[in-house]
């Protein structure tokens, strides 16, 4: 596993455990990003690493995770808010941990539903939680000069 995915995995584990109280374990198979029942949030990695981070899962998996995170009592779209907040935390942590001496900058989360087209060189991570599988993608900008130094594109 390269350096970017190693940091992403650590952040995903910590975040899901603290936000949704969900222990996770990494699995070898990737999440099916062509699944029409997926919901996901993506967030731009602005600096020092340019690209996009995507956090998603089938809606049926997100719902119980979001319910645990919220503790009930949310009448809007708890899944979207859950995915967006987790993506936001992981993106910020990923950049801060990869480049501790530089200032991380990220965008604002954008929510999406349905199949998610992938960049051919996307870095993918899939983990089991007790209610299903969730996936994380890191798509590096082709011109990102830091990409090779940060671990290389898979």
């Amino acid at each position: 596993m390269n350096r970017i995915l190693t940091h992403a995995r650590a952040s995903l584990e910590e975040t899901l455990e603290q936000v949704a109280f969900a222990p996770v374990s990494v699995v070898d198979e990737p999440l099916d990003w062509a699944d029409p029942d997926l919901i996901w949030a993506e967030i731009a990695l602005v600096s020092p690493l340019e690209g996009t981070l995507v956090f998603g899962a089938p809606r049926a998996t997100v719902q119980p995770l979001a319910a645990d995170a919220w503790g009930g009592g949310h009448d809007a779209d708890p899944g979207a808010a859950f995915l967006s907040e987790v993506a936001n935390i992981i993106a910020g942590q990923l950049l801060a941990n990869l480049y501790p001496s530089r200032e991380p900058r990220i965008g604002l989360p954008v929510f999406g539903a349905g199949r998610r087209a992938l960049a051919s060189d996307a870095l993918a991570l899939c983990v089991d939680v007790d209610v299903g599988r969730v996936g994380l993608l890191v798509e590096l900008a082709a011109q990102a000069p830091e990409a090779a130094a940060a671990g290389g594109v898979a």
Partner: peptide, 9 residues
């Protein structure tokens, strides 16, 4: 508070 909190920031 922030997730993107470097020591410099």
């Amino acid at each position: 508070c922030s997730s993107a909190m470097s020591p410099a920031k």
